Simulated scan of single mutants.
Amino acid sequence: MDIFDQPLEIVDRAAFRNGMSRLGSAVSVVTTVFGGKRYGFTASAVCSVSDTPATLLVCINRTSSCFPAFDNARHFCVNTLTPGQEEISDVFGGKTPVADRFVFGEWEKGLTGVPVLADASVSFECELTNAIEQATHRVFFGRVINIRENDEKATLFYCRRRYFGG
């Protein structure tokens, strides 16, 4: 029997989540505007895809309260947080009502009208170019149309269920 003919065991959810908790990543708040209202969620599943054209991806759970807005919006912004902005991450990642989330942080309108965090480490304003379904999530691909960098601030990281920054 060939190794490829043998059924493989699926890793259980708890083991996968524990393993992924060790895969450190930058902490970002992804924002958009839909129907005249601002929406945002905390994400660690953000990745560079290409530099020609400049493209990144972000994953969102389809059960998220923000999902319908992101599913229908043309633009979004990935705002990478800095040390000291842990509360913003917690508010956008928790059960805080969407309307109350933007009380935390100083937000400006980007080129496309999406919320941009004024003192983020870096913000990538994007135009949605593609989206695909994968299990419980949708993966959004965005062509980067504007970047704001903060040379004075480091990036906030999350690993082993804790924040790190310097």
Rank of each mutant, 00 (worst) to 15 (best):
N61C: 08
T31K: 04
R62E: 13
A54K: 13
A45W: 10
G36A: 04
G36D: 03
P68Q: 05
L57W: 00
Y39K: 01
V27L: 09
V46Y: 00
V33K: 06
A69D: 04
T42H: 06
N72R: 11
R38I: 03
A45L: 14
S28A: 13
T32P: 13
L57E: 01
T32W: 01
H75M: 05
A69T: 03
S44N: 12
G24C: 14
S44L: 08
V58E: 06
G35L: 08
S48H: 11
R62P: 15
A45P: 15
S65A: 15
D71C: 09
V58T: 14
A73I: 09
A69F: 01
S65L: 12
L57N: 01
V30A: 13
C59W: 00
S50M: 12
F34A: 12
F70E: 09
G35E: 12
N61Y: 02
A26R: 14
S64W: 02
S48D: 10
I60L: 10
A73P: 11
F34Q: 15
F34R: 09
R62S: 09
V30R: 07
S28C: 13
L57R: 03
A73T: 15
F70I: 11
A54E: 04
F41G: 12
A45V: 11
D71I: 04
S48M: 10
T52N: 14
Y39A: 02
V46R: 03
V46M: 04
F41P: 14
F34D: 07
A54N: 15
V46W: 00
S50T: 14
S44I: 08
T52V: 09
A73C: 15
V33P: 03
R74S: 13
S65E: 14
P68Y: 03
T42N: 05
R62A: 08
V58R: 05
R62N: 11
T55E: 07
F41C: 07
S65N: 14
T32S: 08
L57D: 00
T32E: 09
P53V: 03
S28R: 04
F70R: 13
A43L: 11
N72Y: 02
N72V: 03
T31H: 01
G35K: 07
S28Y: 01
T42I: 07
S65F: 06
F67H: 11
S28M: 05
P53Q: 03
A43I: 10
A26N: 11
V58S: 07
G40T: 03
R74T: 13
Y39E: 00
T63K: 12
F41H: 11
A45G: 14
